[in-house]
C-alpha cells in the first residue's frame, strides 16, 4: 500500500494537486478511500485527517467502504425521472436483494446507486452498468442484464 501512496504523493507534488485530487487518486487506486491511506497522507502533509474526512463525505463521488465488483448506476435526472427511472430503481433493488442500510450486496458482487443526471437525457431513462451506458432502459431489460452478470460471476 505504501508504494502506491508514494506514487500518488509524487503525482500530487508534480501536478500541484490538492486534497480532492489526492482523494480521487486514492480512490482510483483502491476503489474506495481506505482509512489508512488518509492517515498516511495526513501525516505526510501535516493536514488534519478531519479535513480529509470532511471532503470525502461532502462529495458524493467518494466511498469510504469498498464497493461491489459490479457497479450499477441508475440516472435519476429529471428526464429519466419523468420517463420512469423510479421503476428501474425498484426493480433493481428487488433483483439484487440489497440490504437495508447499504447499497452494496452482501456478497460484494454489486453496488447499486442513483446518480444525478449523467447528461444523456435524450435517451432517458439511462442506466450505467460497469461504465457502459444503456439508454431507453426498461425494468425488464435491466433485470435481464443483471441476471446475465450474475450468471457469469
Amino acid at each position: 500500500m505504501e508504494d502506491k501512496l508514494e506514487t500518488i504523493y509524487k503525482r500530487f507534488k508534480e501536478n500541484e494537486g490538492n486534497l480532492i485530487s489526492i482523494l480521487q487518486d486514492i480512490q482510483e487506486e483502491f476503489g474506495y478511500l481506505p482509512e489508512k491511506a488518509i492517515y498516511w497522507f495526513s501525516e505526510q502533509l501535516d493536514v488534519p485527517p478531519a479535513m480529509f474526512y470532511g471532503i470525502a463525505t461532502f462529495y458524493s463521488q467518494f466511498y469510504l467502504k469498498p464497493r461491489g465488483k459490479n457497479v450499477i448506476t441508475v440516472c435519476s435526472g429529471t428526464a429519466c425521472h419523468v420517463k420512469g427511472s423510479e421503476k428501474l430503481i425498484n426493480s433493481a433493488i428487488k433483483e439484487l436483494e440489497l440490504p437495508e442500510d447499504s447499497n452494496t450486496t452482501e456478497d460484494g458482487l454489486f453496488t447499486f446507486e442513483k446518480v444525478n443526471c449523467v447528461g444523456a437525457c435524450s435517451i432517458a431513462p439511462v442506466v450505467i452498468i460497469n461504465k457502459k451506458v444503456f439508454g431507453k432502459m426498461s425494468a425488464e431489460k435491466l433485470v435481464k442484464e443483471l441476471r446475465e452478470i450474475k450468471k457469469n460471476e
Partner: peptide, 14 residues
C-alpha cells in the same frame, strides 16, 4: 482550525 490551529473536527457530510 483558525485559532487553535488543530483542525480536530470538521463538518462532514452535507
Amino acid at each position: 482550525s483558525e485559532v487553535q490551529g488543530v483542525g480536530a473536527i470538521e463538518i462532514a457530510y452535507r
